[in-house]
Simulated assay, not measured.
Amino acid sequence: MTWLVYLPLMLPVLLVPAARRATAAGRPETAARALTAAALLAAACSTACLVLLTATLVDDLPALEQHEDRAAIVGRVLPEPIPDSLALAAALLLVWLAGRLVREAWRRDRAAAVLHDAGRPNAGVLVTDWAPARAVAVPPHRGRAGHVLVTTGLLRLLDARERAVVYAHERAHLRRRHHRVAALAAAAAAVNPLLRPIPPIVDLLIERSADEDAAHNAGDRILVAHTIGKVALGGESAHRDVGGLGFHGSATVRRVAALLTPPSGRALPPLALAAAGLALAATGAAFIEFAELAHAWMPAH
């Protein structure tokens, strides 16, 4: 196969700078979903190319050399044989990436189970007697419906209007199923480590989306911005629970700035779309080359 089979393995690096620009998108919900879709496409293409490289371990194609017409195809499609060491490395890499994907899925499943085990919600809300000011959208898990978990520390910190902002924010996460968007972005990064910066960006975008819903519900963007800042300054020092969606200090400044001066950037920069499209095109071309090679190989056997 030609160099096209290697291209999709590296193209995700173009997605990262484009994704960073998307943090200022005026439509964060659209940007989060588009970025996740682009990351999944890039991850699928790189995985497919690793599979093609691994498939060359099946046979070294010795019989093709005895047929001039087939040898011509090999000379065009596979100008230099892919070393067995490279194909074996691709196979081992696939196994490692599969393990990363399974581990990520298990980690999120375990986090959701722990959050559900914290107690039984009442009218979709569970109040836990924890000192840190926390609010989390607990995703549905194994037949159990999603709900909002808030701590007594948060309730003591906020007044009635601010609590309403929190509830609207967390319910927006549940209504829009942001846990799925975050999980898919994390899965893409698991199968292609070059996409590792993407999940935090998607997390920021879905937080901003929930902020917009809360602002619409409250009719007061300044109130939502004030609530975010108050929670961040109220001592939320505990690290984020994996799988939980809520208020977090790491992106507070960007979220507050977006509420006070709504950005108007594009949902997803053209570079991100171009990178995903190019990865798809290169993968398609690599598959065509491989199919042509396989077609020439099969009659020889």
Rank of each mutant, 00 (worst) to 15 (best):
S85N: 02
S46R: 01
L293H: 02
A275M: 09
A87C: 09
M298H: 13
P140N: 09
G119C: 12
T252E: 12
T261H: 15
S250A: 13
R70D: 11
R208E: 01
A31L: 05
T47P: 00
A187N: 04
A91K: 08
D117Q: 15
W297E: 09
A32I: 10
G284S: 08
A275C: 12
L245A: 07
V242D: 04
S209G: 13
A42D: 11
R110H: 14
R110Y: 13
G244Y: 01
R156V: 02
L78A: 06
L4S: 13
R163L: 11
A258L: 00
T36H: 10
A285C: 09
A43D: 03
A90L: 09
G249Q: 04
P83R: 02
A225T: 11
A32W: 09
R107P: 03
R20N: 09
A286I: 11
T47K: 01
P299F: 07
A210I: 01
R221I: 03
G277C: 12
R171W: 06
G249Y: 03
R240D: 02
A90W: 07
R144E: 14
W130E: 15
L260K: 07
L50P: 10
L293Q: 13
S250N: 09
L149A: 00
V125C: 12
S264T: 15
C49T: 05
M10Y: 08
V138W: 04
W96I: 05
M10Q: 01
P199G: 09
G284N: 13
P299D: 10
P199T: 08
A275K: 03
L64R: 07
L223S: 04
G146F: 02
L4R: 15
F287P: 00
L4K: 07
A215F: 12
R100I: 07
L233F: 01
V138G: 00
D109W: 14
A39M: 02
A168R: 03
L205C: 05
